[in-house]
Design a protein around this nucleic acid. Sequence first.
DNA 1: ATCGAAATAT
DNA 2: GATATTTCGA
Length: 318
Amino acid sequence: MKLSSIEASFNPHGLRALLVDHNPTSLLILSKMLQFYHYQVTQCRRPREALSLIRNGLSKFDIVISCVDFSSDINGVQFLEIIDRETSLPVVIVSADDRKETIIEYVKKGACAYLPKPVRMEDIQLLWQHVARKEVLRFRQMKQIDNTVENGETDSSNCGEEKEFCGSSDGGPVLVDRRRKDRDEEQDKVERKKQRLVWTDELHQQFLDAVEQLGNNNAVPKKVLELMNVPGLTRENVASHLQKYRLNLKKQSGYVQESTPVPNSVSGVSVIRQNELFQRTPSTTQLQSPLVLDQYYMDLGSNSILIPNDRFHEPNHC
DNA sequence: ATCGAAATAT
DNA sequence: GATATTTCGA
């Protein structure tokens, strides 16, 4: 499974939302708002109901949206903790309590967003991004595990934190390399990892010569490679270098305009792309998607995004 | 088969 | 943040 295929197949329409709100009016309003953005909404009024809906597995959900002003035997924080422990669902907290400390507490406990009441349409419109984010995160973890396993195959140096995958249950490391690659292990040492190619001046000059001979316009990686006639060089190396080289030419002629590319669109709704999701500028943590272009978020550390700055009420003392 | 653009990794 | 690698559709 490729990341791009997750993106391509992700559809913000029809996400299954579990909505929890003790107040019937509020429940109705939120439900309508969600439905407006094409969520499939399951409503319930008590945290216990919500938990059993999640636990019995009869219906699957993509996201939980909960107003935590419960008058109930489970309070909001406990509710969140339980869901966080038992599932990997993104949880959005809705509350009239807009004190900063409260918000921080919820986010630290794993809420992926906190929406102070009254909830605005713009807030609802953004929620699907949390589902997308979880997907991407999950994908990355899988990939990381894959890599760990692969590396462990040729080099058994570090099994740092991944106790679960290479740890031993009783009496010493039990992990045995399944694959029998003994025969070419010696040769592997010679080959090493594919080392990153460095384009030295000399190499670049050869490249330039080759490109010139061919004429800039019909210089194509394969041919350039042949003309350069450098032992270890691959076509990919040349292709990449050619790409950068041409980009530089364009820049010099002032031809390219740097701008954020328009994101994919699925069913008329923009799909956030991975880099837009994660490449936040360090200080402002602004998401890059056009959808949320002018919304800023407070960074609370590890699981930090999506608390609109303008929704905070600093405790004003008077 | 292989190019070129764009995503991803270092 | 630049540069190298990888991926992927055409």
